[in-house]
């Protein structure tokens, strides 16, 4: 069952250098309970996609010019500020890359989680506090009852991120948007946080959009993957298909360019050049200046989404 559907979303930013077309017609579906990985390099629009779902994109300079975001049958783009506030946290929650920035340094962790619970599910002081301790326990904070009285600076980076997860999940949202949740963490701690997230997701039956640039993390945690490049989703597939049988030249290049820790690699795939400036995006397919297989049509016409079967969608003229 589809929980969230993004249809033809266009978003632009008014910058000093001119109008940047940051999202150029995004189509995306998230099923109930699944983990969707949204991957791509910096500036491809993956974070902004997550933020536009919750309408956290500052307007101005940002502006959604076209499209729909349908969550649970309703278009979020038509909601008022008050209605959005009801949805944020209770139905859709989001965690960010740097927990130290997201948490308020002058309130205790417990206090901040209690605030989230109070706001959405008021149930009296003592049972709220029980909820706080329970949620800290659920993310494997040792000694949660006394740790709840700690301030963020008394927590390590990994514990802060688990605290954020506890806060976000205390209201049992049906969708969690996790924007680079483990990027600031060391690998041994990253493994702990990813495990906590996966266990809780299973328990709550919640869907997750995992926004990351780390292809390894995607392979380990996601059910489906959408690959973004310069404001477009270029390929979507279930995780096994995407890694075994990538179709878009960018996906293939990206997967081949990762130095792997589990095997020796003689050569990495090189994608020449760098990501385009989105105030002057290339005509046609935005990847064509870096594509080894670029044809004439790629320079003129934007490729449309093509379904290769089993939900494997690719936007590339090679298959059109």
């Amino acid at each position: 069952m589809t929980l969230l559907e993004i249809k033809n979303l266009h978003l632009q930013f008014n910058s000093d250098e001119g109008l940047a077309l940051v999202l150029d017609g995004i189509n995306l579906k998230v099923q109930k309970g699944e983990t969707l990985g949204l991957v791509g390099e910096s500036g491809c629009g993956k974070s902004v996609t997550g933020m536009s779902i919750l309408q956290l994109v500052p307007t101005p300079p940002g502006e959604i010019t076209q499209g729909e975001i349908i969550f649970d049958g309703e278009n979020l783009l038509g909601k008022s500020t008050k209605e959005m506030r009801e949805i944020r946290g209770r139905k859709i929650a989001m965690i960010f890359q740097d927990p130290m920035v997201s948490l308020n340094p002058v309130y205790t962790i417990g206090n901040q989680i209690a605030e989230a619970i109070d706001l959405h599910q008021p149930k009296g002081i003592s049972s709220t506090w029980e909820g706080v301790v329970d949620s800290l326990a659920s993310v494997q904070i040792a000694d949660p009852a006394s740790r709840a009285h700690n301030y963020p600076h008394q927590f390590s980076g990994g514990m802060c991120q688990r605290g954020m997860i506890a806060m976000m999940l205390s209201c049992r949202p049906s969708l969690l948007i996790a924007d680079e949740p483990t990027t600031a963490l060391d690998v041994t701690v990253q493994a702990q946080v990813l495990k906590v997230m996966a266990d809780l997701q299973k328990e709550l039956g919640m869907a997750v959009i995992l926004i990351t640039h780390n292809i390894g993390v995607v392979a380990e945690t996601c059910d489906r993957v959408a690959v973004m490049y310069a404001g477009n989703i270029v390929e979507t597939a279930d995780v096994e298909t995407l890694f075994e049988n990538p179709q878009h030249p960018y996906t293939r290049g990206l997967l081949g360019s990762i130095p792997r820790a589990d095997r020796d690699m003689n050569e990495l795939t090189i994608i020449e050049g760098s990501v385009p400036n989105l105030t002057k995006p290339p005509q046609g397919c935005r990847f064509h200046p870096r594509c080894k297989e670029a044809m004439d049509i790629c320079r003129q016409t934007k490729p449309t989404d093509l379904d290769l079967g089993d939900g494997h969608i690719v936007a590339c003229h090679l298959y059109g």
Partner: peptide, 25 residues
């Protein structure tokens, strides 16, 4: 532990044994 928990870009390796560490540095 470090070698066992580093994410591998291959979904078929997802269920390998991991030597998870507790705590942080």
């Amino acid at each position: 532990s470090l070698l066992s928990v580093v994410p591998i870009p291959d979904p078929t390796m997802r269920h390998r044994d991991r030597k998870m560490l507790t705590g942080e540095i």
